[in-house]
Write a protein that binds this DNA or RNA. Structure first.
Lengths: 330, 330
DNA sequence: ATGAAAGCGCTAACAA
DNA sequence: TTGTTAGCGCTTTCAT
């Protein structure tokens, strides 16, 4: 295909290794000769062959990244930060999507490891012991994000339970006494990794308990939550709010309410979770919990690269979060 | 690192090549022996070394994908389709973001080629002849998407001009006689590749011309378009609509109007372009132009893989589009 | 400062 | 059916 270092060497009348030294800025080649070689190489359109280099070095300067999808802005935003940070460190990420398919997750990890990624950054949807053992046996750094998997792998995320509790306390402080909680199905607790979702629900429960009762809670972890919510007509009887496990649900709920002619927050309050970039386009502004999405992607990559370079990293990194006071809760 | 095929061979008392044949389903190995080797390999945790294979095959089964960013849903959606299609064909995409930086674009292409991608799929922001010559000299298949670059590289997209014209004709048919057009800056025509944007503007102009005048047009290709639009108070004097080069602008405009207490579409019409997935969460529903985003990503990868496999593909692929009749234009 | 030899893990071509 | 030889393009000893 391309020009090889051998061809450059022949052209310059030196050995391959001398070309290598010149090209990679290593010592052991005279300045004049180095300049000459560089010029010749450029003229010939020489380009280093990363695959060959990887083979001999045993490092590819790639990382494998597994996320849910790219439709949910939370993931596309964190993925963007991951790509940016990797790029800045001259690593290239393999970005692969699991789409909530545990089997696919395993296949993808296998594929990535075959391609000799130097490390893995996982938003995992699995949590079975076989998978943990499998990952451990890979003998490459693995970092988990948001959905914690096991003590074997450093984790980065936020304290979801406390975050949700803080958000709920804020809502309660505004006098809301009836709460609907919208979340994806929480039934598959045993098989799927829903660490994050579980913690958010737990935080909600804890906050309500600590408030000493008196607040009515309805958990809507069903696909047709919109229908169920649509049948509720007496939002104003008790001051009511719909809390959501993510901003995407909150946006849906806001529209649902608008369609029914209900005003947010006058008739019913709404709160989200994540603080995706997209919220800036919404009106009324959404009360939500800000995860430092960009910082998380960036820190995750940095920590993974540190591990790859043999440095130790904390086993548990919880980033700061913030309750965002929007107009949807008053 | 991992187990090599040589180790499996030693363990099985055969030669490396026999293991290779067994593992890759090639002929030239007895069935009993094959089964035995496969079992041993699995037991030992053997995993093919893709880097070594790539080196000898001269193919990496990777493609380089350059897109703008992942924040804009248009790109994250098309990228998702690209990843999915690549994955289904056992290719892995390197997804890299240019963020509208022409210099970065070149650096990234260089990096990808060094990593021996089998082909490139570009949403390019450059269009200078040097770049075209450079890409041609790479001698690997290059496919361009949305922003056409040159006849040298197959292109996939939609007929932006006709699409915009169709959309505008629909708007005019509703009696709108005053049009504001919101677009990113169109000034850097000479240096940046704004093929798509240019065509959309041209389609708008053409449609207005064909309508025989009588329609007032204001092009807002400035960063502070919101301010300018904010100063317009007489939307209802002449039936007015704000058309946008993309849905993201249209969403911003809708909110802008809502903030000012103006009703869409009663006081002013709004139309977007792209039909991003996110629109389903908006109210009132947006009139827009549907690009088959998923189909585009899928077809682009398919065509690129066809080229990689030595097949010819059309130089110009225009996908069907559709005017989506939302509530924001009546 | 320069080069020769060896090898990363795999596979294509040829031999037996 | 099985194995040997050679080599992909590069880099790491070790020698000169």
């Amino acid at each position: 295909m391309g020009i090889t270092s051998k061809e450059v060497a022949d052209r310059c009348g030196v050995s391959r290794i001398t070309v290598d030294r010149a090209l990679n800025g290593r010592s052991g080649v005279g300045e004049g000769k180095r300049a000459f070689i560089l010029a010749e190489a450029a003229k010939m359109g020489y380009r280093p062959h990363y695959v060959a280099r990887s083979l001999v070095k045993g490092k590819t300067a790639t990382i494998g990244v597994l996320v849910f999808d790219l439709i949910n802005p939370f993931f596309s935003e964190v993925t963007q930060a991951i790509e940016k940070t990797a790029q800045a460190n001259e690593y290239v990420p393999y970005i692969m999507l699991t789409e909530n398919d545990p089997d696919k997750e395993k296949v993808l990890v296998d594929m990535l490891v075959s391609r000799q990624v130097d490390g893995l950054l996982l938003y995992t949807v699995r949590k079975d012991p076989e998978y943990i053992a499998y990952l451990r046996a890979l003998n490459i750094p693995v970092l988990t994000m948001m959905n914690r998997l096991s003590d074997d792998f450093p984790f980065i995320g936020i304290d979801d339970a406390r975050a949700m509790a803080d958000l709920v306390n804020y809502v309660l402080s505004k006098g809301y006494r009836r709460v609907f909680y919208v979340s994806p199905p929480l039934r598959h607790r045993e098989t799927q990794n829903i660490y994050t979702l579980n913690n958010r629900l737990r935080g909600l429960m804890d906050a309500l308990n600590d408030a000493g009762g008196g607040v009515e809670l309805t958990v809507l972890d069903v696909k047709n939550y919109a229908q169920v919510l649509g049948n509720v007509t007496d939002f104003r009887q008790v001051k009511s709010a719909v809390l959501c496990s993510s901003d995407m649900y909150a946006i849906e709920v806001q529209n649902l309410m608008r369609k029914r002619g209900l005003r947010v927050p006058l008739d019913v309050g709404v709160a989200g979770f994540d603080n995706i970039h997209f919220l800036r386009y919404l009106e009324p502004t959404l009360t939500t919990l800000a995860i430092p999405i960009e910082e998380m992607g960036e820190t995750a990559v940095r920590m993974l690269l540190a591990r790859i370079n043999g440095k130790e990293v904390p086993g548990n990194t919880l980033l700061p979060y913030e309750v965002v006071l929007g107009q949807s809760i008053v």
